[in-house]
Write a protein that binds this DNA or RNA. Sequence first.
DNA 1: GAGATGGTTCGGGCAGCGCCGAACTGTTAC
DNA 2: GTAACAGTTCGGCGCTGCCCGAACCATCTC
Lengths: 225, 225
Amino acid sequence: MPPLAETASLLADRTRAAFCQVLLDGRAWTAGELARHAKVQPSTASEQLSRLVKGGLLTEERQGRHRYVRLAGPEAAALIEAVAAYAPDSPRPQNLRQSVRLNAEARARTCYDHLAGQLGVALADAMITRGLVADDSGLAVTPAGRAWLADALGYQRPAGARRPLVRSCLDWTERRPHLAGVLGATLCATALERQWVQRVGSGRAVKVTSMGVQAFEELLGAKVS
Amino acid sequence: MPPLAETASLLADRTRAAFCQVLLDGRAWTAGELARHAKVQPSTASEQLSRLVKGGLLTEERQGRHRYVRLAGPEAAALIEAVAAYAPDSPRPQNLRQSVRLNAEARARTCYDHLAGQLGVALADAMITRGLVADDSGLAVTPAGRAWLADALGYQRPAGARRPLVRSCLDWTERRPHLAGVLGATLCATALERQWVQRVGSGRAVKVTSMGVQAFEELLGAKVS
DNA sequence: GAGATGGTTCGGGCAGCGCCGAACTGTTAC
DNA sequence: GTAACAGTTCGGCGCTGCCCGAACCATCTC
């Protein structure tokens, strides 16, 4: 089997795809949690997780009787996003609970290690109009943006860093790009740490706190509900 | 089946993957050519092609008794590249003929609609050192690069153009990025048109002509063998 | 120690998918 | 017209691979 088909096979199954998509929240999940989420028996989850780990998409970490599993890295997340984003038509919500959850996620959520949804897109727009990021045939961090990253978020780039400072990530609810890469990740981490946003429920949804509304307004001139 | 698994399924088969990978040369192939290439019966090829077309990865065009098929667009090419590039270890050539072909492709080949291989990476490097493209947390065309694109290649951007001017595409032989996007495509088209490179064999391999060596040297200061 | 919980391994059943060959339709060449 | 050629449709076969339940192992609690 050629490598292309090999890699694609990893994502070409209902159960494994469900695992990968929740793991896009960037956190580590236990095998049992994932099994319940995907509605399969623990034995099935165990096998499929092993395949994903062996395929290099996931990494695992054993702690006592728990098996924690997370995405292998930003490349893995980017791959999953790329395949998922290719879907020509977005599916409609099936029932009320799902619809509520989707609404919350549409407003604000994490996408691997950065912010997405209306919030993510609004922040991206704000950074572009403020001149911190240039949207000039591909995204790039401006010198002003680099200063902001250091001053406002306290980030300093390590010497041999490979990961791009900013990367565009297509938002599957807004159908517009939001910010990934180092900038997106640092912003998201800072926002969680300083309680600008809080996780709600067990999914990827987050909500903006009143502190967050103020901070985003002051730091970026972004008006978020 | 969720959209992620749906899309991945399209590439998760030996035959369909083979189709997509040769179609990365950007040309239109007939169903029969693809069947012979993938070593399957015409009937099999016909069915699998229909799946790829229905899935939106390919578009078809009927001409008389021929069915021409090509990649649906740059997004489709980018998706296939992304999945293929994730392969952790590159496979070794199996036999002599394959090895020769791989060597030719490693030197210079097309990758969908732009140039790849050692040639593609060398050109990318040259454009960066000449200041035509900035490699600054993501690639971007500089003002000088924009002028070069107009003067040297005669390209003028249409009003409502959506495709990014330049995009980074990971080279699977060199393991380094080369240039895709409008810039990569225009450069490749010009190179073929002005006979700087010529296609060799029926695959994706190309070879640089003596005219090409001179042109790349003069226009970009790039030394290509 | 016993019991509960999280996870894994194994055997088996079932469905889906990919492949082929044969028959057929439509187009081009003579 | 006939013959050759490109492609499609359909029935059928075989294999893969996904899932489950049962037994088992390891860890933590009491």
